[in-house]
């Protein structure tokens, strides 16, 4: 049988499966569900849990290793370990994006965050607001940057979930995986992890929660869009400076 025919009979969407596994694990790492240094289950175990073949899983792990998100050590005490991108250099990450890509990502993220915030304001009930307030309270007392970042991610997912839309929530999680770490790193670069910058972030979130609680959908949307656009404007400025 020639190669072309073999390709025809290759398992359907095995590439899509690899991508799905890569995306799932990338999301989990970006959101802090999987943490730096954490050991992943054995290949056989992980493949079984994710419902994919070992071959598919190995391909996905290879891609994650190339992205620096997973490290594999051989021998005794070996295995695959998570490498959270906390320490990734903004410049290195940013060079991978053209300015128009950043703008487009920002447009997409603002649309998702804005739409989710508007629907959340229309639909949120007290049990949807409680997690938001709890996350803000925890953020106010977070004692290190990694924890603050994870809580910030959780807060944004909770706002999206308050919209009652599973698709918007999935999209929020995906976009956080794509652009979240970069936005966070740029924030560090801009202001450092000092009390002022944390205060400002909390104030932004607090204002958004109030708009949602008041049922003011237009205001909630405008605020959520503004927050994304501000952060993205800054990221684009950083990117433009890299070219000089």
């Amino acid at each position: 049988m020639n190669t072309a025919r073999l390709a025809v009979f290759a398992p359907v969407d095995s590439t899509a499966r690899v991508e799905a596994v890569v995306r799932r694990l990338t999301d989990a790492i970006a959101l802090g569900l999987l943490t730096d240094g954490e050991q992943l289950p054995s290949e056989a175990e992980l493949a079984a849990q994710l419902g994919v073949s070992t071959v598919t899983l190995r391909e996905a792990l290879m891609a994650l290793r190339q992205q620096g998100l997973v490290e594999t050590r051989r021998g005794r005490g070996g295995g695959s370990f998570v490498r959270a991108p906390d320490s990734l250099d903004v410049g290195v990450r940013l060079r991978a994006y053209a300015v128009d890509e950043l703008r487009d990502l920002g447009d997409h993220y603002a649309a998702i965050a804005g739409a989710a915030a508007r629907l959340a304001a229309q639909r949120a009930l007290p049990s949807d607001l409680a997690p938001l307030r709890r996350s803000l309270a925890e953020m106010a007392t977070a004692d290190w940057d990694g924890r603050l970042r994870r809580l910030d991610g959780r807060f944004r997912v909770e706002v999206a979930a308050a919209s009652q839309s599973a698709r918007l929530t999935q999209e929020e999680i995906r976009l956080q995986a794509d652009i979240g770490p970069l936005l966070w790193l740029s924030r560090d670069e801009r202001r450092g992890h000092d009390e002022m910058s944390v205060r400002r972030l909390l104030d932004q979130h607090q204002t958004l929660v109030e708009a949602i609680a008041a049922g003011d959908g237009d205001r909630a949307r405008a605020l959520a869009e503004r927050h994304v656009q501000d952060a993205m404007d800054h990221l684009i400025e950083l990117r433009l400076r890299l070219q000089e």
Partner: peptide, 9 residues
């Protein structure tokens, strides 16, 4: 990951 000190969720 069920360790609340390492997972925000």
């Amino acid at each position: 990951d069920l360790d609340p000190s390492s997972s925000a969720f």
